[in-house]
Design a protein around this nucleic acid. Structure first.
Lengths: 237, 237
DNA sequence: AAGTGGTCTAGACCACATC
DNA sequence: ATGTGGTCTAGACCACTTT
C-alpha cells in the first residue's frame, strides 16, 4: 500500500484494507467469530497510519461485517440471515417450495428507450432491454414483473425463453449479484396490472422495487406487483 | 467543544457536531438543499481539528442526512420517507435522521388477556402488556403501533412515558434483541386505524408485523400500520 | 486563484479488557 | 502491565468546483 496513490486515482488505502478483509472473509480465511488482526498489526502489514486502518475497520463495523470491542479486539461478525425480501427474486423456487406449479406468461420482451429506465440503470444512453411477465401459482396470477435490464451486463437477454426459466434465475446464473436495493410500497394497481393479476377493484398491491448491482453496474431494475390478498413478504433477521 | 472530554465520558466531539447539525435541521435552521458550513468554518466554530469535523460530516452523509460534493460544498439531503426493514430501528430515530420532529400520542397502555396476544408471545397464561400509540412526523400521523409485550422481559413497561421515548427505544435500551421475524402486507385499514392515521377511504396501508426475541423469550409482538401515501420501506443488501 | 471536500500522517491521551 | 480500540490533533497533498 504505497503512501501516495500511484496513478489514475486508484482506491484509497482505507478502501483497499476494507476489501482485503472482505476478501479474506469471502474465501474462508476469516470465519465468523475469528479475531481480525489488530490495528497495530495492520499498520505494520500495510505500512499506513493507524487512523487509516481505524477508518477501514470502523466502516466495516458500521456495515455489520465486524464487531469491535475496546480492550479486546476485532472479530468477524456472525453471518447475517438473508430475508425472504431477497429470496423473492426466485418466485419460481418459492412456488416450488410450496409444492405448487409455476407457470409464466411473457407479455413483452423488447428493447426500450424509456428515459426513466435508462436513468434507473444509471446509463447515459439507451436502448435497454425490457420484459413484462406474469407469474402464476397453480394457474393463478401471483406476480406481475416489469423489468429493465442493462444490455452491457446481459447482452443475450432478449434471446431467452422466460417461460422456462425466470429472468432472475437466468441472471444470477450468469453473474453474481453483489448488491441490492429495494423498496416496498402498498399501492393501488393501474387497470393494466389489475387485470393481469385478476384482482378486484379496490384491492391493493404489495409493490416491491429492486435494483441489483453486478460490480459497479446496475444490472437490472424491476418492479414486482403482488395482489395483497394472495401475497405477503416474510423473513427473519 | 473542549479538546479533552471533561468527565463522565461526555459525547465525543464528532458526535456533538453531528447532533448540532441534526438539531439545526430539526428546528428548520437548515432545510433540504441548504448549504452546510464548510469544514474550515466548523473547525473555527467548534475549535477542533479538521479531521474531527470531516468525520462528523462524512457519517451524516453515510446516514443519508447530507450530500457532499468535492469542490462545491455540503448540502442538506432531500427528505427521505423510507424505512429499513432489515435493521431494527425505531420510528423516532428514523424521523430524526430525516431532520424532522417526532411526536407520539398514547391511545392505550394497559394489561390485556387477549388469548391471541398471549399465544403470539408464546406464553401459557396472561396477562400481557398492551400499548397502542400513534407516531407523528412533523405532526402528521405516520405510524399506528399496536404492541403486545412480554411482562417477564419488561416488567416495568406500563410505567413508562411513551411520549418521551418510543417503546422500541425503551426495549432495546434494556435488552438486546437477538432475533426478529417480520411479515409485510398491503392491507386496507379498519375504520379505527384509518381515522387515527388521517387516511382517505380506499387508501391502502403498508402493514408490518414483527416479533422480536430476547434470549429464548418472545419479547414483543407488534403490528405497525403506515399510510401507503406517506410511507414505504426500503433497504439495501 | 480560491475554496471545497477526500485522504493521509505521526504522533498523542484515554477507557477498557485481558493476562 | 500490556494490548486493544476510540478519539483527537495539526499539519499536509490532492482532485475538483467555483469564481
Amino acid at each position: 500500500m504505497q503512501n501516495k496513490p500511484a496513478r489514475g486515482t486508484p482506491l484509497p488505502a482505507y478502501e483497499q484494507i476494507k476489501r482485503h478483509v472482505l476478501a479474506q472473509i469471502e474465501n474462508g480465511l476469516l470465519k465468523p467469530g475469528d479475531v481480525v488482526p489488530s490495528e497495530t498489526e495492520m499498520v505494520k502489514e500495510f505500512g499506513v497510519a493507524r487512523m487509516t486502518v481505524s477508518r477501514a475497520l470502523r466502516e466495516l463495523m458500521a456495515e455489520g461485517v465486524l464487531n469491535r470491542v475496546r480492550g479486546s479486539g476485532t472479530y468477524v461478525a456472525p453471518r447475517q440471515y438473508e430475508s425472504t425480501v431477497l429470496q423473492i427474486r426466485n418466485i419460481a423456487d418459492e412456488i416450488a417450495a410450496r409444492g405448487h406449479r409455476h407457470t409464466a406468461r411473457v407479455l413483452a420482451l423488447e428493447s426500450s428507450d424509456d428515459p426513466n429506465a435508462v436513468a434507473a440503470l444509471e446509463l447515459d444512453t439507451g436502448p435497454v432491454f425490457h420484459s413484462r411477465i406474469v407469474h402464476n401459482e397453480e394457474g393463478e396470477p401471483i406476480q406481475y414483473e416489469d423489468r429493465y435490464v442493462n444490455p452491457e451486463v446481459f447482452p443475450e437477454y432478449l434471446a431467452q425463453d422466460f417461460t422456462v426459466e425466470t429472468p432472475n434465475n437466468y441472471m444470477v446464473r450468469l453473474a453474481p449479484i453483489q448488491r441490492a436495493e429495494f423498496r416496498i410500497y402498498a399501492q393501488k394497481p393501474d387497470a393494466h396490472v389489475r387485470q393481469h393479476l385478476a384482482m378486484e377493484i379496490g384491492e391493493p398491491c404489495l409493490l416491491l422495487l429492486r435494483r441489483t448491482w453486478v460490480g459497479k453496474d446496475v444490472a437490472t431494475s424491476v418492479r414486482l406487483w403482488h395482489p395483497a390478498s394472495r401475497f405477503h413478504l416474510a423473513g427473519t433477521v
